[in-house]
């Protein structure tokens, strides 16, 4: 063996230190959720949670929206972990769309109901964005670190999904202590913040997940 490719193979083989195998995406998603759950619980407890939270959780619409937000976070995290494993089917990347559709659909229905009853509320609520960032910060950091262990095949899509997971989890936490819950307000200010953070994460994707960071030319 004498060619440049053969030299490369010799060098790579000489560098074949044992590696820790990446667990399957489902297990990684569970790890992420387990790491983030206590943080979200503590931040909500510090805020503190809404006094009528127990009552709210019995209301169908609130429970459905919170359930859909949580499922969006979980499905997006799973999809993000799938996206960084070569050779996996791509359909799981679309999984978060299901709970996301339920979430948005429920909020849209809430908007219509409030409009019919003349209860539509509209005012500026700029507190949502920093609060979602605050709750979603640790989940986002953990997500980036975990995604960086994978292969940067689709950096934008991977980070977009990872960002959606963190922001949706942030919004789930926010609604447990944030008193403003008129559907239009939630849709515009909270889901708007989630969308903005998701897009920012997608934009940062190629900077955070790259072949270059793994010592390979871009």
């Amino acid at each position: 063996m004498t060619g440049p490719a053969d030299d490369l193979i010799r060098r790579l083989a000489a560098d074949a230190a044992p590696v820790r195998r990446l667990p399957p995406p489902l297990r990684r998603m569970l790890w992420w959720a387990l790491l983030c759950a206590p943080y979200v619980a503590v931040t909500v407890w510090i805020m503190p949670p809404l006094p009528d939270l127990a009552d709210k959780l019995t209301r169908m619409q609130f429970a459905m929206q919170q359930g859909a937000a949580l499922l969006t976070a979980i499905a997006a995290a799973y999809a993000a972990f799938v996206a960084v494993v070569p050779g996996r089917a791509r359909w799981p990347l679309l999984l978060p769309l299901l709970p996301l559709a339920v979430w948005l659909g429920s909020l849209g229905k809430g908007c219509l109901d409030e409009w019919r009853l003349g209860l539509t509320a509209w005012y500026l609520d700029l507190e949502c964005l920093p609060k979602i960032v605050y709750i979603g910060l640790l989940p986002a950091i953990v997500m980036v670190i975990m995604l960086q262990r994978g292969a940067p095949l689709w950096p934008r899509a991977s980070m977009l999904l990872g960002g959606l997971a963190a922001a949706a989890l942030g919004n789930f936490g926010l609604r447990l202590f944030h008193p403003h819950d008129a559907s239009l307000m939630v849709l515009v200010w909270q889901v708007g913040s989630v969308a903005l953070l998701t897009l920012i994460a997608g934009w940062a994707g190629p900077r955070l997940l790259s072949w270059q960071a793994k010592g390979v030319s871009p």
Binding site: P4, A5, L12, R20, R21, P24, V84, V85, G215, V216
Partner: peptide, 21 residues
């Protein structure tokens, strides 16, 4: 072609932890 092949070998090496046996 050789460039792409070698880049692929290096990339494969860099992400070999992602292979699930």
């Amino acid at each position: 072609i050789e460039d792409i092949v070698q880049e692929t070998l290096i990339s494969l090496h860099a992400v070999r932890a992602t292979y699930d046996p």
